[in-house]
Design a protein around this nucleic acid. Structure first.
Length: 430
RNA sequence: GGAGAGAUGGCUGAGUGGCUGAAAGCGGUUUCCUGCUAAGAAAUUGACUGGGGUUUAACCUGGUCCGAGGGUUCGAAUCCCUCUCUCUCCGCCA
């Protein structure tokens, strides 16, 4: 959520910055400014009446205490009360109206990101590793995984529904190995590991910006104010919701492995094959809470932490700086890491690292004090995947495939596995 | 799931209709004193927000907040209703 005071003070600047994302947003700022004026007048009027009420009520109390008559005052109060009633109803309505619009406005994009409507305008800032030349035709991960007996698509559908996959045997072990490897690396980079609830309440989703605007993307528990998390960003960022931290608490580096659940509404025909786009997928999430002046640097560092994983796995990737139109709702600046898929002959997203500046912190009221005398300030939040596990498995299959259909296991993962190669017919357990 | 108790400021904890934004203690901050691995004295001490003021300070002046949301009342932390959470006991359970 944007700062209402900033809009009040500098509407033209806010409009100009938001227009880089979407020209129609300027209109919303105007609407907010207009309601804001009306709202503040209502507040003033209400408070004046409340002052009168408080003073008179006090007088009534004093008179009654002395056994005097207070009829005149009480009559006056009755009048004030009826006036107050009307304004007291109107004032919060105006506020709600204002907030309702404000909630739908995305974050202001950073000045140094390219302007554009969609991924066409994203800027490649780095390409790492050379896509491997194969002496045979590289195949896609779903075909390899099926043949290896590690992806059971049919039974995943039987157990749940489409876009759910049963991962078996060496695949399940590889998934666990990748999770452990990622978590160990995160620890090495100074992140505190947590295991959060994967059901969260609506306050959390509001805090990180998924609600109210993106409700259709999330699975909800029936008759409860609980939702399956779409990303561990939600519980992790909300750890300190509505709290005031001290400067010594910052920065906080937090990581977690969780399954994630997305309804994928509106992506019916996208990536129907394979495990790229599932309703349930595993991910290690990296989250940072830091001082405002540190967020730019911390964001760069967090992105590099995610990149280091791809480098350790020796998976070629490119780093994309997202343009204004392709960024997520709450993001101020965002890098996507895209890993090379030889079977598909494409780079595909495997991590998204965003700096939200104070956007989430304002919604979730996460603040800190520089010292015991200073005022509480909003801190900055940053998060990124480090990394999506399912897509990592898919990328390993495609990049490490061999002509006979077996798949070599990346060196850094071998200490986490019993085997050095995935081969069909190997059952790790009877 | 059943029964009971409770939810007050950074913490402990008073407070059953007006003088309580909240006693007292602890903690924090500032100043003073003492010249010493310490102690003492005084002052100060929440969040959000409107208006004025100002160097985006200080400051002045209102309003709201005693788990959350409603209600009663001239007036509520205090009474009523709903919800949430915590604790104890019982049941169930990995």
């Amino acid at each position: 959520m944007l700062d209402l005071k900033l809009i009040r003070k500098n509407p033209d600047q806010v409009k100009a910055q938001l227009s880089r994302r979407d020209a129609s947003l300027a209109e919303k700022i105007d609407q907010i400014s207009e309601i804001d004026k009306e709202h503040r007048l209502a507040i003033q009027e209400k408070q004046e009446l409340e002052t009168q009420r408080n003073q008179l009520s006090k007088l009534v109390g004093q008179k009654k205490g002395k056994g005097e008559d207070a009829e005149a005052e009480m009559q006056e109060l009755a009048e004030i009360k009826s006036k107050l009633q009307a304004i007291a109803d109107k004032e919060p309505e105006l506020y709600d109206k204002q907030i309702a619009i404000l909630e739908t406005i995305p974050n202001i994009p950073a000045a140094d990101i390219p302007e554009g409507a969609d991924e066409e305008s994203n800027q490649e800032v780095l390409k790492w590793g050379e896509p491997k030349e194969f002496s045979f035709t590289a195949r896609e991960h779903d075909e390899l995984g099926k043949e290896l007996g590690i992806f059971d698509f049919e039974r995943g559908v039987k157990i749940a529904k489409s876009r759910f996959t049963l991962v078996r045997n060496q695949g399940a072990k590889l998934e666990r190995a990748v999770i452990n490897f990622f978590l160990d690396q995160a620890s090495n980079h100074g992140y505190q590991e947590v295991l959060p609830p994967i059901l969260v309440n609506s306050n959390c989703l509001y805090g990180t910006g998924q609600l109210p605007k993106f409700a259709e993307d999330i699975f909800k528990v029936e008759d409860e104010d609980l939702y399956l998390i779409p990303t561990a960003e939600v519980p992790l960022t909300n750890i300190y919701r509505e709290e005031i931290l001290t400067a010594d608490d910052l920065p906080q580096y937090i990581c977690a492995y969780t399954p994630n659940f997305r309804s994928e509404a509106g992506s019916a025909s996208k990536d129907t094959r394979g495990i790229i786009r599932q309703h349930q997928f595993n991910k290690i999430e990296l989250v940072k809470l830091c001082r405002p002046e540190d967020s730019t640097e911390e964001h760069e560092k967090l992105t590099k932490d995610a990149e280091a994983l791809l480098q350790a796995l020796e998976l070629p990737y490119r780093k994309m700086l997202l343009c204004t139109g392709d960024m997520g709702f709450g993001a101020h600046k965002c890098y996507d890491l895209e890993v090379w898929f030889p079977g598909q002959a494409k780079y595909r997203e495997i991590s998204s690292c965003s700096n939200f500046i104070d956007f989430q912190a304002r919604r979730a009221q996460i603040r800190f004090k520089r010292d015991s005398k200073s005022k509480a300030e909003l801190l900055h939040t940053i998060n990124g995947s480090g990394l999506a596990v399912g897509r990592t498995i898919a990328a390993i299959l495609e990049n490490y495939q061999q002509e006979d259909g077996s798949v070599a296991i990346p060196k850094v993962l071998q200490p986490y596995m019993d085997e050095t190669v995935l081969r069909s017919g190997i059952l790790t357990q009877a």
